[in-house]
Design a protein around this nucleic acid. Structure first.
Lengths: 209, 209
DNA sequence: AAGTTCGGCAAACGACTGTTTACTGAATGG
DNA sequence: CCATTCAGTAAACAGTCGTTTGCCGAACTT
């Protein structure tokens, strides 16, 4: 890591940030595949050619945004998993953290949600790989809980994927609710909590596959 | 409904079909938002101007594709819900139907998966509205099952949404597996079955929210 | 048989695209 | 203080784009 910043590097990174922010802002109602270099530089207040001082492609800018977005997501997940306590409190806390995360990082979350199945292979794969790592992390955390005594590796992975998929669905629902009707957020949160309770109920009586 | 077809209408609908097919084909590795009128007409073997005889927008073509895609999806869902029998057989049959549906309608499913959170509002809303209707339909079917005795309306809806979200996630997973590594399909199917079993276990012990 | 409808075409419009080029000028380092 | 580095610029390249226009000719109507 290079933390030494001359005024030189500082200004460059400022421009890079401007490009990322411009891209993120434009991707609010647009796909990465339909984004244009000129469009981004115009929004960032730079000349078109300046873009190529920072990224070779728009796909590269997309991958950079993925890394950024997933960094904060990772922090969020660890925050949930680090919590100890009964299943009920853990569920409440998890849904709460997701809701707040979507609120605080709306552009990043929307970007991830939109490009997860989007048209740019490189970005799609980066997102999926990282979600897979999340599932693995969740699986490890689940293994430590007393409820998981006697669970096979596969079953833990299966449950972890169910949780991650549910988290993704819930985050998307929060996103749409926030754009359309903010009052619906509470209904979504309540539904998500019930679904998690139902899952943890099934988990308690699970006998192995 | 107008079923009378002169040679006139027949040729027009043939061109319309060519446009839809061309669009669907191009959307295999591209977003609707990044699709072009000229691109579609070129692929369909028509002149650019011909497009406007059938659709005012590319968004309109997208909506038409949504309706088409969801028609077959609806058939699939009804097929699953119509099945009677124990929970185990129902689960096996459901996963099987999803897997076959993704195989047989790959372009449509990929289109839905890609545009569900895509950049074209009109299309996004059309998909979400229809998925909501699916959830309602699933909820009604669940209410008829003996296991759901004493369930509140909200809890049924909650469970129905969990099932629909799970179906969507599973379909997406099948899609990616098919494009990358066909052998992984069986692992996905096994995971989906386990997850559904876990859910129906939680369902059996549910006490209300 | 004559008249009308209308799906499809070629051509043209201006606007916008990605990318390369040669250049400028301030920060950098000896 | 002078040489070098290099982020950013303006201009030009050859395309592609969406959309409109006027027209053709085959299918309909009467």
């Amino acid at each position: 890591m290079n933390h030494t910043v001359g005024a030189r590097q500082a200004q460059k990174q400022q421009s890079r940030r401007a490009l990322l922010d411009a891209g993120l802002h434009l991707l609010a109602d647009q796909n990465l595949a339909s984004l244009g270099v000129r469009e981004v530089t115009r929004e960032a207040g730079l000349s078109p050619a300046a873009f190529y001082r920072h990224f070779p492609d728009l796909a590269a800018l997309g991958v950079a945004l993925v890394e950024e977005s997933l960094a904060s997501l990772h922090v969020m997940i660890r925050a949930v998993l680090a919590e100890a306590g009964g299943a009920e409190e853990l569920i409440d806390r998890a849904v709460d953290v997701i809701q707040r995360h979507v609120r605080d990082h709306q552009p990043h979350v929307r970007f991830l949600s939109r490009e997860r199945h989007g048209g740019v292979r490189q970005v799609r794969e980066a997102i999926d790989a990282e979600l897979g790592r999340f599932a693995a992390e969740v699986g490890s955390a689940l293994a430590l809980q007393p409820v998981s005594a006697g669970w096979s590796e596969q079953d833990l992975r299966m449950l972890a994927e169910l949780y991650v998929d549910h988290m993704v669905s819930t985050a998307s629902a929060f996103l749409e609710a926030q754009e359309a009707d903010p009052a619906r957020e509470q209904r979504i949160a309540a539904t998500a909590r019930s679904q998690l309770r139902l899952i943890s109920l099934g988990r308690r009586y699970w006998q192995g596959s």
